[in-house]
């Protein structure tokens, strides 16, 4: 049995994907088939579109937070931040007639700014990352509404000028079929970020910070810079997530968004990123997010109503962290 396990683990295909990711992949397929079997409406094409819609903004945050997690940190400000940037972005369009492309850039810039603030204070004053990002989480929750005077955000839609940005995520063909184009960008981003994580200095040093910060310092690397950079990446992706959210949902209520980050963090941890830092995988995060999205979209089809969503989030997160803890304790 043990031998079999080992030989399975040394199989080149398995090695390339990683055992954990393979397990998630299998779970994904089984889960999909299960829903397919139990629910007829689930089999519709629109379900897949629905999964995609739900997935975009969670996945973008999840890719982003993978980087602070690898440094051994965290970012809790993503959820409320996302809503905050998105509301402000739409406010800029509605109140100042800003062209949509400029608003998109502003949205991302706000994310990067918040990421930088988080990163600088965490790396410089050495405040525990969760406390720091908790404060910015509270801050963002109020700030969106404060700056826009409690503006309920709506980005251009339908035939309005500037509604083009929604076609980044989906194209409606003449016969009303929706093509989830966003998925293509997601896969592209996963590939790009995997490259950055594994083949550039940014990624290398971010992993090294999580693995042994002191050793990295002794090697003469500017640890501060790269530590902040991890949070900037996270902020950038939260900005992207804000756009994805705006692109898929018509109404954005300021002050919401708390709890989105938990789905994102959960995705990353399920995907094999360790809470203790040092290792992580963007592909894993992608698969983890797929799993969470499938669960959350699929369960209502078999009778578990939407109000179960939060319990599922909580349960998945607890399970993921417990497994992560157990796994990392075994390895000294």
């Amino acid at each position: 049995m043990e031998k079999q396990k080992k030989s399975l683990a040394s199989n080149p295909i398995v090695r390339a994907i990683g055992v954990q990711r393979l397990v998630i992949l299998i779970v994904l397929v089984v889960l999909y088939l299960f829903f397919y079997w139990r629910s007829v409406p689930f089999r519709r094409y629109t379900t897949l579109v629905q999964i995609c819609n739900f997935m975009y903004y969670i996945l973008l945050m999840a890719i982003g937070v993978t980087f602070p997690l690898i440094t051994g940190g965290n970012d809790l400000s993503m959820g409320t931040g996302l809503i905050c940037y998105s509301v402000i972005g739409s406010y800029l369009i509605r109140m100042y007639n800003m062209p949509v492309w400029a608003a998109l850039i502003c949205t991302i810039a706000m994310g990067v700014l918040m990421g930088t603030i988080n990163g600088v204070i965490i790396a410089k004053i050495e405040i525990p990352p969760f406390i720091m990002t908790l404060s910015t989480m509270m801050f963002c929750r109020g700030m969106g509404a404060v700056l826009t005077n409690n503006f309920s955000g709506t980005w251009p839609d339908g035939s309005q000028a500037g509604a083009w940005f929604r076609s980044i995520f989906r194209i409606v063909t003449p016969n009303k079929t929706i093509i989830p184009l966003g998925m293509l960008w997601m896969i592209l981003l996963v590939i790009i970020m995997t490259f950055i994580l594994n083949h550039t200095r940014v990624g290398r040093y971010i992993i090294a910070i999580g693995s042994n910060k002191e050793a990295l310092k002794l090697s003469g690397v500017n640890v501060f810079k790269w530590h902040v950079f991890a949070y900037m990446i996270c902020g950038f992706f939260t900005g992207l997530a804000a756009i994805a959210y705006a692109g898929t949902f018509s109404n954005i209520t300021p002050g919401t968004g708390a709890g989105f980050e938990l789905d994102a963090i959960g995705s990353a941890i399920i995907g094999g990123t360790a809470m203790t830092g040092g290792s992580g995988s963007v592909v894993g995060t992608f698969l983890g997010c797929l799993l969470i999205s499938l669960l959350k979209t699929g369960l209502p089809f078999i009778g578990l109503q939407a109000n179960w969503q939060q319990i599922i989030t909580g349960g998945i997160l607890l399970a993921a962290v417990t497994i992560d803890m157990m796994r990392n304790r075994k390895r000294p």
Partner: peptide
Amino acid sequence: AFVAYLHLPSFITSMALMQVAKGLGSV
């Protein structure tokens, strides 16, 4: 129990429980 006996970080544990509490209330 999660924090003291399983040594999970308290912030993530309690955030998960926050979701459970919210969900349980509405369910």
